[in-house]
Structures are given as structure tokens and as C-alpha cells.
């Protein structure tokens, strides 16, 4: 068996002293797409942020390895430069900093890390325009400050544009589909699919089966109260869409009485 791209074992994570993830395990191989579904507040964003290295989230026990290395020991920017990308559920605004300027700085930081020379301005703009077109980001947005005054859908497409520019090895997508109209959803899904390859893996957090029609996952997991309680193939998403999460709760309660807070 090859080393998984991402291997999380029994991860416990706390925020401000409250444990949110209670022993989560997940393994993602290169080439795979894993979807994570689960009710609001179950810890999906917490998982993506702790993997990306947000300091507010403390790992109290367990491990996460990325390309065989201890992911948790790395600074967030090193994780990023090593190919881990997080598309945020709520993209932030940075007033006064142009999208283009920022993306070039980010790309060059990645290139430097890989020992490549900086990409010159002309070449960069050419690539940026092409990728912007691919995810239907209006060229005017490129010169505007990062996400400032962007519509919800524009912000989400901007996240995907950043991903296309940085070409990560492991993409974590946190509800990138929420707030997108149906055309934008297809465009975004297409953008993600264009990056799919046997070297890359994706963890896609979503509430809706609809996205998974376009980004077809290899596995679907249910995250519930800080643990992955059920995993399956793509059909599991359809079942969840139809039946909600109640039946999983019941199944759990029947299997381990007392383990589920109701």
C-alpha cells in the first residue's frame, strides 16, 4: 500500500478549552476525492482549519500526516507551500490589497519554496487571465481589493481561482458550493475537476448532494458530533439527501447507548 496523501488518526481538537473533534480518523490517498457531510456545528470547518494550521484550534492528541510527514509540526505557510490548500467557507476581505498583487506574492512564495524562479509579471498576468476565465471571474475583480465588496458567489469563485493558480496537491474545500447559483456551481465543479489527477487529493465539505453530481467523490463520510460515524461510497450522499441525519443518530444510539448527546 502506498503512503496515504493524508492520514488522520484519532485526532482530538479543542477551541478555547472545549473539545470539538473527539478522535477523528480519516485517510485520503492521492487521486481520491472524499466528501464530508454532517449537520451544522458537527466540526467540519474545524477539521479543515486544524489541518491548515489555524492557531485557535489546538490538537490535544492524535496525529495527522501529510505525504508521510508530521503535518501538525509545520507552520501554516509551510503546509500551504507544500501543497495544502483550503478554500474557506467564509472568505475574508483584505481592504486595499489587490487580488492580483496578492496572488502573485502567494504564487512566488510557493515557487521560491520549490526552488523555482519568480514568475515574471507578464507571464503571471497571462496565466491569471486564463484561469480567471476558466472560473468566470470578471477581470475587473482581479484589480479590486481581495473580496472587498464581492458578492457571495464571486468570493467563492475567487477561492477556486486561487486554488487553480496555486495548483495544490491536497485541496480542502469547505462548502464552496454554498451561495452559488446553478451555473456557478457547474463552473466551480469544473474548475476542481480540471485539477483532479492521480497525484492530487480533495476533501470536499458540503451539505448538498447536488455538488457531488458534478464533483463525483470516491468516498462519502458523515461527520457527527466531532467523529466520523459513517463512511460509504457516493450513494451514501444520496441516502443522506433523502433521509437527513436522524437515522444515523438512531443507529449510533442503538449501537453504543449513551455515546450520543441528544
Amino acid at each position: 500500500m502506498p503512503t496515504p496523501l493524508l492520514e488522520i488518526k484519532d485526532l482530538h481538537v479543542s477551541v478555547e478549552g472545549t473539545e470539538i473533534l473527539h478522535g477523528l480518523s480519516l485517510s485520503v490517498n492521492a487521486g481520491e476525492v472524499h466528501a464530508i457531510m454532517g449537520p451544522n456545528g458537527s466540526g467540519k470547518s474545524t477539521l479543515t482549519k486544524v489541518l491548515a494550521g489555524h492557531e485557535a484550534y489546538q490538537v490535544t492528541s492524535g496525529s495527522a500526516r501529510y505525504k508521510g510527514k508530521d503535518l501538525l509540526a509545520l507552520e501554516p505557510e509551510i503546509r500551504a507551500r507544500e501543497g495544502l490548500f483550503l478554500a474557506f467557507q467564509y472568505p475574508l476581505e483584505i481592504p486595499g490589497v489587490s487580488n492580483t498583487y496578492f496572488l502573485r506574492a502567494a504564487l512566488n512564495a510557493h515557487r521560491k519554496h520549490r526552488g523555482q524562479p519568480e514568475m515574471d509579471a507578464a507571464k503571471f498576468l497571462e496565466v491569471l487571465k486564463e484561469k480567471a476565465k476558466q472560473v468566470d471571474v470578471d477581470p475587473a475583480l482581479l484589480n479590486r481589493p481581495i473580496n472587498e465588496g464581492f458578492s457571495g458567489g464571486e468570493k467563492k469563485r475567487n477561492e477556486i481561482l486561487q486554488m487553480l493558480m496555486l495548483e495544490p496537491t491536497l485541496g480542502l474545500l469547505d462548502e464552496t458550493d454554498s451561495g452559488l447559483d446553478i451555473d456557478a456551481l457547474k463552473i466551480v465543479a469544473h474548475g476542481v475537476n480540471s485539477l483532479r489527477s492521480k497525484e492530487r487529493g480533495f476533501v470536499v465539505v458540503t451539505h448538498y448532494q447536488r455538488l457531488l453530481d458534478y464533483i463525483v467523490p470516491d468516498y462519502v463520510h458523515v461527520l457527527f458530533q466531532g467523529r466520523i460515524v459513517k463512511s460509504g461510497k457516493k450513494e451514501l450522499a444520496l441516502e443522506l439527501e433523502k433521509k437527513g441525519y436522524g437515522w444515523i443518530e438512531e443507529e449510533l444510539a442503538a449501537a453504543n447507548p449513551g455515546s450520543v448527546k441528544v
Binding site: R81, P95, A109
Partner: peptide, 27 residues
């Protein structure tokens, strides 16, 4: 902290992140 985290997640060092935010502020 979230702004700094966002920029670091895109590969910028903490210093560069602060710098970028400050320059944006002064633009």
C-alpha cells in the same frame, strides 16, 4: 488573526502577511 491566517494559508510568511495588510490599509 483570521486575516493573517488566510494569507499564511496562501503561502505568505507571517511578516509578509502583516506587511500586506498594513500596506493595504495605507494604500
Amino acid at each position: 488573526d483570521d486575516q493573517i491566517f488566510f494569507l499564511r494559508q496562501r503561502g505568505l510568511s507571517e511578516e509578509d502577511a502583516v506587511n500586506l495588510i498594513v500596506n493595504g490599509f495605507c494604500k
